[in-house]
Design a protein around this nucleic acid. Structure first.
Length: 669
DNA sequence: CGAAGACCGCTTTTT
DNA sequence: GCGGTCTTCG
């Protein structure tokens, strides 16, 4: 981003600019004033994994059954509150509701207290704590200082900001009133993580005197692509509404293709990619496959490998999320920030040192009494001889190691120090001694991790980067012509000549879960996602859907997405190769077409295909109960059928549990 | 304490 | 169908 901006300004320096994501800038700001909210500037930024572990621990102390009251749910509520910049004190018991056994507010309060004790922040805190600082009249001087520093504020992707980000912006923009936000309400796809389209819709009211400039000319896509995208998004009620137009030629129509199953879909797309490359001179790097959900990627990877089409997965399992990388980082974290209990707990017995669960629990209990971090407690207990001989010696020497590493922090090059830590701790040796097939790769990853540290100034600077930019920037240089494979969310802001959009099936896209959780709002967000997908294409867009999709390891038959129906006839061209009747986007699959044409390749379904249009993702059971139906059970209560296998139903009940039951025991609502 | 096996939940999307 | 977590046993 810095490079691009500098280039656009004719090489002008952008050093000293506050240029980054909300979280990165807020983190920087918070480090400067950490002590105002009871932190030190070396505070740790927890990722959601650590944060969740913390919530889990708190739930345990409250004796909440993780089955009935999943910590994940508590975590989600806390996140949503923080998205709205609400501290525990801003919430009353009634608002917290009776979720988590009525203890939700207590959990949040405790969670915040623990974060402070850990000298840590989660993502939401970065903004929340900044807001608390800036809006406190006692800190007027600080705010005034930022008003002086930030004469102009520019925001991109404004439709994806949440309430907290909006409040932070407003505090900062109050000074000069010079704020410019760019966004597209039709591209708001992060509602599930607290983004508020409302921010963009009410911008004029929030910033009095604001001037609205509508950008309706599209410079990216050709006419048919624009037409198709506009036709779909027009079905949304909740939008400002705009009419996109283009100077460009109408170009190619959007290709819509129905196929038999995911395998056929992957083959179709892979072959199309080859054709485009060989006969149309299209570069692979100008093509992308955009999926709704990560699990769809696999079939494409397999096919690409088989056909030797270079590809690259974006946003897959991340480098920094790998166990060995996280372990290594945990060591560094404890060195930099001794109060980081989560990190310390992670590595206290990795590699194996003979420090078991019991010892850790004792340490925790003692820490609570003494009100000190684990590392301090451990040191004190060792010194006082409160631990059993063997455990005491081990912990004692580990603590000495940490002391030594810490003392080298200022004198030694951080890359060398990191290598030293991994060596002396025995962590690297642990993997080197490991005979399992993946151990080799883990050692490589650790080396890569250390190599990657060199471009940062210090160990803390590196840790900051890791916390905020959870991406691998592995230089995949060996071949720079590859097809991109990513989720629709991941594709936002990008563009390609040719875009493939597979999996347009009811239940998958739009996602059933999204609709269940958020109803019409959820559906409209899905539709915006469709809009985003289509408009990633400059010249060619391909939409496909299949009759049979494998999910959770079993076959599911699917209907074309309603979004396929919504594509304007004039802008599309439908394929007819799958034994379907008529246009290829009819609501009904012709089962006779399947049997004659695809007898040999028919997935193993144990029920006739005839009933498949009764409901989305449905195979009727003997009692006519189908997937997606809501049923009641005398003991378990109400639930939704998530899978049907003959007379056996998998039902997810309201308490979150899933049970396999015979259909005769439940009743359809 | 660790290994092996059962079991469960998961597939929406992520700064 | 898989991978992570919990349970059980030695």
């Amino acid at each position: 981003m810095k490079e691009r901006i500098s280039k656009l300004l004719g090489g002008a320096p952008v050093e000293g600019w506050a240029l980054g994501t909300f979280h990165a800038l807020a983190a920087r700001m918070l480090r400067r004033h950490a002590e105002l909210v009871g932190l030190t500037s070396s505070f740790t930024i927890l990722d959601q994994d650590d944060a969740l572990r913390l919530v889990k621990q708190i739930c345990e102390t409250k004796n909440l059954d993780p089955k009935k009251n999943p910590p994940k749910m508590a975590m989600a509520m806390i996140d949503r509150w923080k998205d709205k910049a609400l501290s525990p004190t801003d919430i009353n018991q009634r608002e917290a509701g009776d979720v988590m056994g009525g203890q939700m507010l207590a959990i949040y309060t405790e969670y915040q207290a623990r974060l402070k004790a850990l000298n840590a922040c989660d993502f939401g805190d970065l903004l929340l704590q900044c807001i608390l600082i800036l809006r406190n009249p006692a800190n007027a001087q600080i705010l005034a200082d930022y008003h002086r520093r930030f004469k102009y504020i520019m925001v991109d992707e404004y439709q994806d900001t949440n309430v907290a980000q909006y409040m932070w912006l407003r505090l900062l923009a109050q000074g000069t009133g010079n704020i410019c936000c760019v966004g597209d309400d039709d591209q708001s796809i992060y509602g599930w993580r607290g983004a508020e389209v409302g921010n963009i819709l009410k911008f004029e009211r929030d910033f009095v005197g604001a001037k609205v400039i509508r950008l309706e000319q599209n410079y990216r896509s050709t006419g048919h692509i624009l037409g198709a995208a506009s036709g779909v998004i027009a079905n949304n009620q909740d939008r400002l509404g705009k009419t996109l137009w283009s100077d460009d030629e109408p170009g190619e129509k959007v290709r819509v293709q129905g196929l038999w199953d995911g395998d056929a879909e992957a083959r179709y797309i892979a072959e199309e990619i080859e054709t485009l490359q060989k006969h149309r001179g299209e570069k692979l790097r100008n093509m992308a496959v955009l999926v709704r959900a990560g699990f769809q990627m696999r079939e494409f990877e397999e096919r690409f490998i088989q056909m030797a089409i270079p590809y690259r997965v974006f946003g897959g399992p991340r480098f920094y999320e790998r166990a060995e990388v996280r372990d290594a980082l945990a060591y560094f974290r404890v060195v930099v920030q001794p109060a980081d209990d989560l990190a310390f707990e992670r590595i206290i017995n990795t590699p194996k040192r003979g420090i078991g669960d019991t010892t850790v629990q004792n340490l925790y209990a003692e820490s609570r009494v003494r009100n000190t971090p684990l590392t301090t407690t451990a040191e004190q207990m060792v010194a006082a001889g409160l631990l059993k001989a063997r455990v005491g010696t081990t912990i004692g020497s580990l603590m000495k190691d940490f002391d030594r590493w810490r003392s080298l922090l200022t004198t030694m090059n951080h890359g060398e120090l990191a290598a030293l830590i991994l060596d002396e701790s025995g962590y690297l040796a642990m993997w080197q001694a490991d005979k399992s097939p993946e151990a080799q790769g883990r050692v490589e990853n650790l080396k890569e991790l250390i190599a990657g540290m060199e471009e940062f100034e210090s160990l803390p600077a590196f840790l900051e980067h890791v916390s905020l930019v959870m991406e691998t920037q592995t230089a995949g240089t060996e071949n720079d012509d590859y097809v991109s494979l990513m989720t629709l969310h991941g594709a936002k802001g990008l563009e390609f000549n040719c875009v493939f959009l597979p999996g347009w099936e009811e239940g998958l896209f739009p996602s059933q879960k999204s609709m269940d959780e958020s109803g019409l709002k959820g559906l409209e967000e899905e539709r915006r996602l469709a809009y985003v997908g289509i408009t990633r294409a400059r010249k060619r867009a391909y939409i496909s859907f299949v009759a049979n999709r494998r999910m959770y390891g079993n076959w599911i038959n699917a209907l074309p997405s309603r979004f396929v129906e919504e594509l304007p006839e004039d802008h599309i061209e439908s394929g007819q190769e799958t034994g379907m009747h008529s246009s290829g986007r009819s609501k009904h699959w012709d089962s006779s077409g399947f049997t004659s044409q695809y007898e040999d390749r028919k997935p193993k379904v144990d029920l006739p295909l005839s009933g498949m249009t009764t409901s989305n993702f449905t195979k009727p059971s003997t009692t006519g109960i189908a997937m997606g139906d809501v049923v009641t059970h005398p003991t378990f209560g109400q639930g939704r059928v998530i899978h049907v296998a003959g007379s056996k139903l998998d039902i997810r009940f309201k308490d979150g549990s899933t049970k396999r039951l015979l259909d005769s025991f439940v009743q359809k609502v």
